[in-house]
Design a protein around this nucleic acid. Structure first.
Length: 506
RNA sequence: CGGGGUGUAGCGCAGUCUGGCUAGCGUGCUAUCUUGGGGUGAUAGAGGUCGCCGGUUCAAGUCCGGUCACUCCGACCA
């Protein structure tokens, strides 16, 4: 590709709403363009190209793992969501609308219902199982607060896979296979990541794991053990239980729990005063959709005490129960090996769930077993935020000048920079190298614009192609430069050897 | 949903408090010249429903009322 022909509106100015490196560089580099704010983005040619490359890696690994790609309708009938009971549970994030005949539709935020519907119509026998189908398609979630560019847009590209099995054991086998497949995907993309235990949230199910790309700018706090493999989202983390006795100071936190159909309930949570309440755990403990703050009240009807207090506290309530509702703190002991747990920040780029029959039962996704008896399919579901991965890659791979794309995500393999296009020698060599490398199947960007050297280098650094050849003034001495974006190391190579030099590398 | 802020050229902003003539700056864009190893310099241009609706006034980007949108900080999410 010739730079002069490419639609890349690079800018010096930082967009005023961008604070994250990935957001700033994606906009400044002309990879994406904001659509009137509000978490919607257009992908310009370079952004689209990277998206496709990431897409290709994901597809390649899934196909190798035996998954089959499909593509489901983005617009989905609301009736399916009523069937599964999620129309209400999912709440305002669902973008709902009516067609001209007044039928209710939603834009799919995730596709369990649609996929189960597809499978229940086509799979009838145990002989057709197991099955793992996936798609890489747009999702729309009407987020409360979209921000950080591609990190949390309202419209985003997601890979969502769904597996169907005759037994829990077989589903768990597939779950493990997906975990391995995800590790391959993230590794190929050049990401440093950690697999952690997670809360299942609105998707439901049990035994879910998140794939966290480690970055200080990550929105999730994860608890990791430096001495073993243990890692968990703070929402699901557990530590070795500490012991308390009757002298322990106990504090009580008042919250309001929200349920379907506008039902609310005031709940009190009791825990040692040195320990923080973990809201997601607390929410799960009372099976609520959401917890909101509530002013303290003295009359305690429903009380959930932290399991650490069992047999220790003397609180009394009409309805009293124990559950793990405490937040793991830094320095707590690892339940597996006793190591001192640490906090770190991560970007949730993938999440895999063991669903069981939570969707197949209400939606009637049954198969006939060997005995001719109808059984609900056992399911797993597996997601990767593909467009979020672009942001994650930059968060982990950038410097103050711009992006540093990893090998499998880079928009081009090589950039050839002609320093001064008025120098016929430089132009001739640039054009020649360009042709030669294209013939070798290397994806090359040739910067033959009229701009000066400085502007071209700034753009090179901003765009972040892994390697560049600079044909400049020392061509007079028969030398060109080979630059690696990561670290900006320069290497002088003689003109006679440059073709061989590049051939070895690409 | 709670608390702040902002809507003026593609982008970044000034002007609004204290109403006044042709609405300005930077950047980007076009043209010509200049320069040629880290966003060169000069000249000339194109580009605006001042978020929207209504009101006050001889006169509104500026004052008043309403409305919409965006955005930042918190609680939720791939």
């Amino acid at each position: 590709m010739r730079f002069s022909r490419l639609l890349i509106p690079t800018t010096k100015e930082t967009p005023n709403d961008a604070t994250l490196a990935s957001h700033i560089f994606l906009i400044r580099g002309g990879f994406i363009q904001s659509v009137g704010g509000s978490g919607l983005y257009n992908f310009l040619p370079l952004g689209k190209k990277i998206l496709d490359k990431v897409h290709a890696v994901v597809k390649d690994e899934l196909d190798k793992a035996g998954c089959q790609e499909v593509s489901l309708s983005f617009v989905t009938p609301a009736s399916l969501w009523e069937e599964s009971g999620r129309l209400e549970k999912y709440g305002k994030e669902l973008l709902r609308f009516k067609d001209r005949k007044n039928n209710d539709f939603i834009l799919g935020p995730t596709h369990e219902e649609m996929m189960v519907n597809l499978v229940r119509q086509t799979v009838k026998s145990y002989k057709q199982l197991p099955l793992n189908v996936y798609q890489i398609n747009l999702k729309f979630r009407d987020e409360i607060r979209p921000r950080f560019g591609l990190m949390r847009g309202r419209e985003f590209l997601m890979k969502d896979a769904y597996s169907f099995h005759t037994s829990t054991e077989d589903m768990q086998r597939e779950f493990a296979l997906m975990e391995e497949t995800y590790k391959k995907i993230f590794t190929r993309l050049g990401l440093e990541f950690r697999v952690v235990d997670a809360d299942s949230g609105a998707i439901g199910g049990s035994g879910s794991k998140e794939f966290m790309v480690l970055a200080d700018s990550g929105e999730d706090t994860i608890v990791v053990c430096p001495d073993c493999e243990y890692g968990a989202n703070i929402e699901a983390a557990v530590a070795k239980p500490k012991t308390y006795d009757v002298s322990t100071q106990v504090k009580v936190v008042t919250m309001k729990a929200l349920y379907d159909e506008g039902v609310t309930k005031v709940v009190h949570f009791a825990l040692p005063s040195s320990v923080e309440l973990q809201e997601v755990k607390a929410c799960n403990a009372v099976n609520a959709n959401e917890l909101v703050e509530h002013e303290d009240t003295d009359t305690i009807i429903t009380l959930v005490a932290d399991s650490l207090l069992e047999g220790v506290d003397s609180l009394i309530a009409e309805e009293k129960s124990y559950a793990d509702i405490s937040a793991v703190q830094e320095g707590d002991s690892c339940a597996t090996c006793g190591g001192a747990l640490r906090y770190t920040k991560g970007i949730e780029a993938g999440h895999i769930f063991q669903l069981g029959t939570q969707y197949s039962e209400p939606l009637g996704a049954n198969f006939l077993d060997e005995n001719g008896k109808a059984q609900p399919m056992v399911m797993g579901t597996y997601g990767i935020g593909v467009s979020r991965l672009l942001a994650a890659i930059i968060e982990q791979n950038h410097d103050d000048k711009g992006c540093i794309w990893t090998k499998e995500s880079a928009p081009f393999d090589l950039q050839i920079i002609i320093s001064n296009i008025k120098d016929d020698g430089q132009v001739a060599l640039g054009e020649k190298l360009y042709e030669v490398m294209l013939d070798k199947g290397v994806d090359v960007l040739l910067d033959e614009r009229k701009d000066r050297f400085g502007a071209k280098m700034k753009d090179y650094e901003l765009l972040g192609v892994p390697h560049a050849v600079v044909i400049g003034k020392n061509l007079a001495d028969g030398v060109v430069e080979f630059i690696s974006r990561n670290g900006m190391e320069k290497e002088e190579v003689s003109v006679d050897e440059i073709v061989d030099f590049l051939s070895e590398r690409f």
